[in-house]
């Protein structure tokens, strides 16, 4: 057991115990990479809570935690979890793409598909369709 896996034992134990599929851990150049797919957003959030307790504000940078959520599939409902403002819906996957609509904070919209891990194709209640940044979309 390395010093890193020892430091993050609680996080690794939680990842192992919470039904993460394709769980992968690898240590490279002093950084512990943990990735996998959580059964729901709650499991993912709990893992991040555990990580944040061990390394407050994530300032040490000795972990890269990359957890997807398996319920984020085409047709699923996702909640807009922006900080304050509405979420931009863009013509294509990229912030250089023109904005074609907005989705209000806390509104529930439909996930139509994924261009990649970061850019998801979404549709709002009133029919606006385009790409939004996945970090601000929480699967329900």
């Amino acid at each position: 057991m390395s010093a890193l896996t020892d430091k993050y034992k609680e996080l690794l134990d939680a990842a192992n115990a919470s039904g993460i599929t394709d769980l992968q851990t690898a240590e490279t150049d002093g950084v512990l990479h943990i990735s996998g797919t959580a059964p729901n957003a709650d499991v993912k959030n709990k893992l991040w809570d555990t990580y944040g307790k061990i390394d407050p504000n994530f300032l040490t940078g000795d972990v890269v935690l990359d957890i997807d959520v398996s319920t984020a599939v085409a047709g699923a409902k996702v909640k807009v979890t922006t900080h304050e403002t509405a979420l931009n819906i863009r013509k294509g996957p990229g912030t250089d793409q023109p904005i074609v609509g907005k989705a209000a904070k806390d509104s529930i919209i439909t996930l139509v598909g994924k261009a990649n891990d970061q850019w998801w194709l979404v549709r709002t209640e009133d029919g606006a369709e385009g790409y939004s940044y996945a970090q601000y979309l929480t699967p329900q």
Binding site: N57, L59, D66, H83
Partner: peptide, 26 residues
């Protein structure tokens, strides 16, 4: 402080070798 989690999650999801936030003032 309320947004550091969002920032870290967004950056870690990009498959970096490391996300170095040590110089960030929270």
């Amino acid at each position: 402080k309320s947004r550091i989690l969002t920032l870290k999650q967004a950056l870690d999801a990009l498959h970096p070798k490391k996300t170095n936030l040590s110089a960030v003032k929270v």
